[in-house]
Design a protein around this nucleic acid. Structure first.
Length: 655
DNA sequence: CTAGGGTTAG
């Protein structure tokens, strides 16, 4: 009664009306309990009208209220169709469609009672079958629906199509769809969406071609459909010819480029979107934009995107927060990455995994492990991706024992069985630390066939520690598994060069020639004034090429005075010492850094992104540059970050 | 009843 007194009550209302007002304003379970006590006192519990308001409210506030709602419902002596429908719908909405379904089945058993299922009940039942994936009941309901003639309407037909699709029975779904004389727009869109979900773009295309009218959902489904198959060109074609475009269309297309790692295209399209000035980017657009910035290592662009988010008051949710954390980490700014992470309202396993991965890639292994234990303390369950982050952090930091302990804890503490990727990380940890035999033993003992990545990891470690015998086995397996990949050949020829096995080097080179295997050229990019400049080894197309080379020659001369000696051991033998130096001199990262020295303010940090691993000579060169030119230089290579400060590197020459 | 977003070893 006290609860009722707290809300302003116009005179002349019945108790029932007052109870309804109270119900509508309540969100917490104990409010409901109070109301319930009240209702019992006044015998209003049995009132279908009151319950039809109360139950949906109760279930939408928290699905933990389900048992209570259920008991209220079960106590009702004569529920009517309307109340049943309310309850079934509320159960479905609160992700308890199986409960809704059981209520529907109960309803049908009450043969003698006045309550009968109507068209809407069947609609809800079909939907509930789809949501709970119950094909058996779905078929029964379908048969009944047909018998009663409720399937003549397109809306019921549409949910039936969707139900079969959700229950993994695309054939029935398609059959129903094909049987329709004139499916409406929504029905076609539903069919399209399901074709996309089961990756049947051919069928999707047929449906699409036959559609007499198309709306935004149609175009956007097609864009996303092609994008999810990786057919970016087809997605772009739909995007270009679409009769209308909204923020979903632009976001889908930007996401398509970002996911296929065409980050420059993604950023270009985002720019175009802003120029078009018709639709406003939203939080979902920005997630893809940030992902593209991170991929490109474009810190300036990423910061602008972040400012855009703040300026336009786009709230930072879990996904956007994670995207920001990841972007800053990939762009080499762990300070901001950590700040954004700490400012997030809540953090889930994605967010934690992202920060752990970021810290690990920058070589902050201990910090990464610290964050991992904080995550556990906060009760977030790690998944197998978290462990990729943790193990790779140990690997980059040279933490062998910690790595081993984490690997063991996966199964023993966290109930996760290590996958081939985790074994790969362990091979990397052991191999880098020089424990090549142990790494090999692990490969032999693991419950998977070793994949190419595992062998390449071992080969990398063999190269690092100049172990030719174990390398031979890795090479043999690698060439069997990936005969066409250039990386394996480059790594092999590199190893043989270091070991001075020149015959083997020429074998490998001949195999590459015969197999028409092209080396992926090394390329490095640097962002100056928010523009990304890309350099490819030996590529003269940059208009400033001669200036840059001149600058680079001066740089090298200054470094030599400071004691720099080129590391030529990995260069093939049939070059003279001078030619060897030249082969190294114009590696892309050196060009990019020379360009950076020319175009950025003295003392400012230079950030370079490289597509391959940085070679030993470049590593040494950059160390010298950081000292001689008093610059902090951050290089992201294929596997990690190198922070060069005053002549030394954060990787402690361990990469 | 239908469409877009975040973490993955080398």
């Amino acid at each position: 009664m006290q609860a009722l007194k707290r809300i302003p009550q116009p005179l002349g209302q019945s108790l029932e009306q007052r109870a309804l007002i109270l119900v509508q304003r309540s969100t917490k379970l104990n409010h409901f309990l109070q109301i319930h006590a009240l209702l019992i006192k006044t015998s209003l519990t049995c009132n279908n009208h009151v319950l039809a308001k109360l139950l949906p409210q109760l279930l939408s506030s928290s699905s933990a209220n389900l048992p209570y709602a259920r008991s209220l419902f079960d106590e009702t002596p004569s529920p009517d169709t309307f109340l049943y429908n309310c309850m079934i719908m509320s159960c479905s909405k609160s992700h308890h469609s199986e409960v809704g379904l059981s209520l529907f089945l109960n309803m049908r058993l009450r043969k003698n009672s006045v309550v009968a299922a109507d068209g809407f009940t069947y609609f809800l039942a079909v939907q509930a079958c789809g949501k709970s994936g119950d094909l058996r009941v779905g078929r029964i309901v379908h048969a009944e629906v047909s018998k009663l003639g409720f399937d003549s309407g397109l809306i019921v037909a549409t949910v039936l199509i969707e139900m079969y699709a959700k229950c993994d029975d695309m054939e029935s779904s398609k059959r129903l769809f094909d049987a329709l004389a004139e499916p409406d727009l929504v029905c076609c869109n539903v069919m399209l969406a399901w074709c996309v979900r089961v990756r049947e773009m051919k069928i999707a295309r047929e449906v699409f071609e036959k559609m007499p009218e198309r709306d935004l959902v149609t175009w956007n489904t097609m864009i996303h459909g092609y994008a999810s198959l990786g057919d970016i060109a087809a997605a772009k074609m739909i995007f270009d010819v679409a009769a209308e475009r909204d923020v979903v269309s632009w976001s889908s297309m930007i996401a398509a480029y970002a996911k296929s790692r065409q980050s420059n295209e993604a950023l270009k399209l985002f720019h175009e979107m802003q120029l078009a000035n018709v639709v406003v980017p939203d939080r979902i657009t920005m997630v893809s934009v940030l992902s593209a910035c991170g991929d490109a290592g474009a810190l300036g662009m990423g910061k602008m995107a972040h400012e855009f988010i703040v300026r336009n008051k786009i709230g930072i949710d879990l996904k956007l927060g994670t995207a920001l954390v990841d972007m800053y980490a990939r762009c080499g700014d762990m300070d901001i990455s950590m700040r954004v992470f700490n400012e997030m309202n809540s953090r889930d396993v994605f967010a934690w995994s992202a920060i752990i991965m970021g810290l690990g890639s920058h070589g902050f292994a201990e910090v990464a492990l610290h964050y991992f234990s904080k995550m556990i303390e906060e009760g977030i369950k790690p998944n197998d991706i978290t462990f990729i982050g943790v193990l790779s952090a140990c690997s980059h930091g040279g933490l062998v024992d910690e790595g081993r302990a984490c690997f063991r804890s996966m199964a023993e503490v966290h109930g996760l069985s290590p996958k081939v990727e985790h074994y790969g990380c362990m091979v990397d940890i052991l191999g880098r630390a020089g424990r090549l035999q142990e790494a090999m033993d692990l490969i032999r003992a693991m419950p998977f066939e070793a994949d190419a990545v595992v062998w390449r990891t071992l080969l990398g470690a063999c190269r690092m520690h100049k172990n030719v015998e174990l390398a031979e086995e890795a090479i043999a397996n690698l060439l069997k598994l990936e005969p066409l990949s250039d990386g394996s050949y480059v790594l092999s020829s590199n190893l043989y060069s270091l070991a001075k096995k020149w015959n083997k080097v020429s074998d490998i080179r001949r195999m590459m020639k015969n197999g028409k295997i092209q080396k992926v050229p090394g390329s490095s990019s640097i962002e100056v004034n928010n523009t990304v400049y890309e350099f490819v080894a030996g590529d003269r197309s940059n208009p400033k090429f001669t200036d840059i080379c001149k600058m680079l020659d001066e740089v090298i001369d200054r470094l030599k005075i400071a004691g720099y000696k080129p590391v030529t051991a990995a260069v093939v033998q049939d070059f003279s010492e001078h030619e060897k130096e030249n082969a190294l001199a114009y590696h892309s990262e050196k060009l990019a850094i020379a360009f950076g020295l020319l175009t950025t303010a003295p003392g400012s940090t230079i950030r370079v992104i490289k597509n391959l691993r940085v070679c030993e000579d470049c590593h040494l060169t950059v160390k010298f540059i950081s000292k001689v030119y008093c610059r902090n230089i951050i290089v992201r290579d294929r596997t990690r970050f190198h922070h060069f400060v005053e002549g030394s590197c954060s990787c402690k020459d361990y990469w």
